[in-house]
Structures are given as C-alpha cells and as structure tokens.
Design a protein around this nucleic acid. Sequence first.
DNA 1: GTTACCACTAACCTTTTGTATACTACTAAT
DNA 2: ATTAGTAGTATACAAAAGGTTAGTGGTAAC
Lengths: 118, 118
Amino acid sequence: MEVVEKINAKECSSRLGHISDSLYVIGGKWKLPVIVALREGSKRFNEIQRAVEGISARVLSSELKELELNGFVKRTVHTQTPVVVEYEITAYADTLNDVLNALSSWGAMHRNTLKNGR
Amino acid sequence: MEVVEKINAKECSSRLGHISDSLYVIGGKWKLPVIVALREGSKRFNEIQRAVEGISARVLSSELKELELNGFVKRTVHTQTPVVVEYEITAYADTLNDVLNALSSWGAMHRNTLKNGR
DNA sequence: GTTACCACTAACCTTTTGTATACTACTAAT
DNA sequence: ATTAGTAGTATACAAAAGGTTAGTGGTAAC
C-alpha cells in the first residue's frame, strides 16, 4: 500500500484537458506578442502591426478575432472618416499573470540549466 | 507621474523569450500527455504508445527524443533478447509543477468563465 | 508456419499554420 | 496626380506538424 499521493485517472485527464485549454489560448506564434504590444496601451490595427515585428495583416486579423473571443481584447469602432478601430486589452487578460510568470521563470531557469550543461 | 510598475522594453521582450522557450518545450499536441503517462511509472515504447491514445510510433519516437534532450525523460536500453528500452521521467520534470498547476487552474477558470457567458 | 511482440524508421500524405502580394474604398496630404 | 494612411479581405503559396502505412530483424507463443 503506497501512501504517496495518487491522483486518479479521471482527475488526471481533466487536468490535462485544462492545460490544453490554456495552451490553446496562449499558444501559437503571435498571441503573446500581440497581448504584450497592447499592454503598452490601446492601439489601432496598423499600429499593432508595426509594434509586433513580422506579423502579417492576415494573421494579425485572425489573432485579434481569437483574442476578442477569449475576452482578452476589446474592439471598438469609432465611426468617423476614416473609420478608426481601437483595440485594448481587458482586465480579464490580467488573470493570465500567474501563468505568464510561471512560464517566464521556468523558461529562464531551463535556459540556464541547458547552458550550464545538465 | 504614474506609480504603476512599468517594465522596460528589454525586460519585457526577454520575458517574452523565456515564455516562448517554455511553450516550445511543453507545447504541441503530445508532450504533456507523454509526460503524464510516464508519471504513472516507467514504461517501454509500446506501453507508452498504448497509454497515450492516438499517438503514432513516428510521433512518439520524436517526442521522446525531444523530451530526453530537455532532460525530462531518461532512456535506458536493457540489452537482452529482445531488446527492451525503458523510459522514465526524471526529477527535473518535477520543476514543471508550478507551470502545470498555473496552466491547469487558469484553464479550468477560463472554461467556466466562457460557459457562464462572459 | 503463421501470427504477434519488440523498438523503431522511411516514405509519403494531409492538415495546420504562417507568409506574400495584391486589392477594396475612402481621406488627406504633397 | 501621386503617395500614404485607414482596416482589413482574397488568393495563392510555403513550411511545419502530425498521420498512415509498411517494413526491419529477431524471438517466442500457438
């Protein structure tokens, strides 16, 4: 009889599911760079494209749509001429802080570990 | 004069780099499922393939190589006939715990938030 | 003697993800 | 009149990730 904390299969796979959900939301090449760019302040479409080096309009457009769907970004259309569309991060994006901190510090640690050989 | 914590651009982009490093290591479709499977105990190649539903031999083989490179998995060849190869997770894999916990709880929270409309 | 298991690998195909280029329709500056 | 900026979309293409199928060389069970 082991006294070790055993997690049952159901709990484990739902945990895995939650992790996948998270990775789906922040994964990919551009999600985080876009979020980071918007943290500096709200921006218009072309401003974001200039801030995030290398992103194409097509990809930026789809990334912004997903970020909006997930509640990270708010899109506001100012009906002037020319039409101006403003993107800003929401307070909900801040709920990612713990995740980003954990990822950032683990990433830094890991890079160091590899550099110093094992 | 804002009292808000401002992070400069360099710090911010290195942070982004660390996060990318992390996502590179645990991202993709199969890394975490494989790690999870090995947490139950060390396994042989075909055992892992049976435990991780849907993974092909080709993909499993490459995932195991990367996991070994990153120090998460130890590969031991027992030279018998037939040759038996044993894979086990290392203690280093435990350094991921904070990351996985953060991802898991954020994912669960996010799913709930979406479910309850906004 | 056929089948199955062992740990893979090679070749090829499909799906996903990202890139490049051009275009809309309008405004304002040069 | 040309150029640039406004916010994108359409089309086509390239690259990366992953899936499918088959096969290696040996043992051991049925």
